[in-house]
Design a protein around this nucleic acid. Structure first.
Lengths: 114, 114
DNA sequence: CCGCGATAGGTAGGATTCCGACATATAAGA
DNA sequence: TCTTATATGTCGGAATCCTACCTATCGCGG
């Protein structure tokens, strides 16, 4: 997949991954890779700023896991995040329908008459 | 449609609009607006740089219409542009399938067993 | 025990892309 | 004549993603 094709859709994907339950950043990355068959393979320089964006927007909350060992930040969907995900799914449907139609070969005059 | 959702897909749309025959920039803008029911309504600051990109990439050729009156630049798909359009349609299909699947609600264990 | 890979998180700078505002000019119509 | 539509373009800003780099812990093979 072209690198920049993702633009504008990544946030929705992250929300979708977090939908079933909380997860930390690295796990989100893996799950997204799994869901896309390896096609969407985020760099950490993409993932972490994106998660911060979502957190600042109030769509997810992040908390450091206490205790020893590797520090992890667990992210969880907020109610606003859930609504945003629902909205994003609608936006995605519209987007696909609109761009898909515009990208399809133009109907010829004969097609239009048929 | 969110403004930045288009990113990475505009070039393909422009090629698709130019597929049936040559057109000048302003007409491309109108046709794209028509095809998308007004959803994709490009600013000139988006359209003209994009057309230049495509021209520099050798996917379209532009020629100024001679004669008096408003100056227009007619754009036409090159053979490379036609191949690129074909490729882009494939890329779009993959993109939609991949992101659509990842965005869908995760299958529950019960779903997977069914 | 020590190095190494996997895990886990992060920052900084660069590239791309689209938008908004502005500029220019011609043609048509009120 | 004034306004609107047509037609093309530039410039700076904003957003987003990538590359490269950095730090640190944990488990495992040697």
């Amino acid at each position: 997949m072209r690198a920049e094709a993702l633009k504008g859709h990544l946030d929705a994907l992250l929300l979708a991954v977090l939908e079933p339950g909380p997860a930390h950043g690295f796990a989100v990355m893996g799950e997204l890779r799994r869901r896309t068959g390896g096609t969407v393979d985020l760099e950490s320089g993409t993932l972490y700023p994106a998660l911060r964006r979502l957190e600042e927007a109030g769509l997810i909350t992040g908390t450091w896991t206490t205790g020893p060992g590797r520090r992890r930040r667990e992210y969880q969907l907020t109610e606003r995040g859930r609504r945003a995900l629902s909205d994003e799914r609608g936006v995605w449907q519209d987007f696909v329908a609109t761009i898909g139609a515009a990208l399809a070969p133009a109907a010829t005059v004969r097609d239009a008459e048929a």
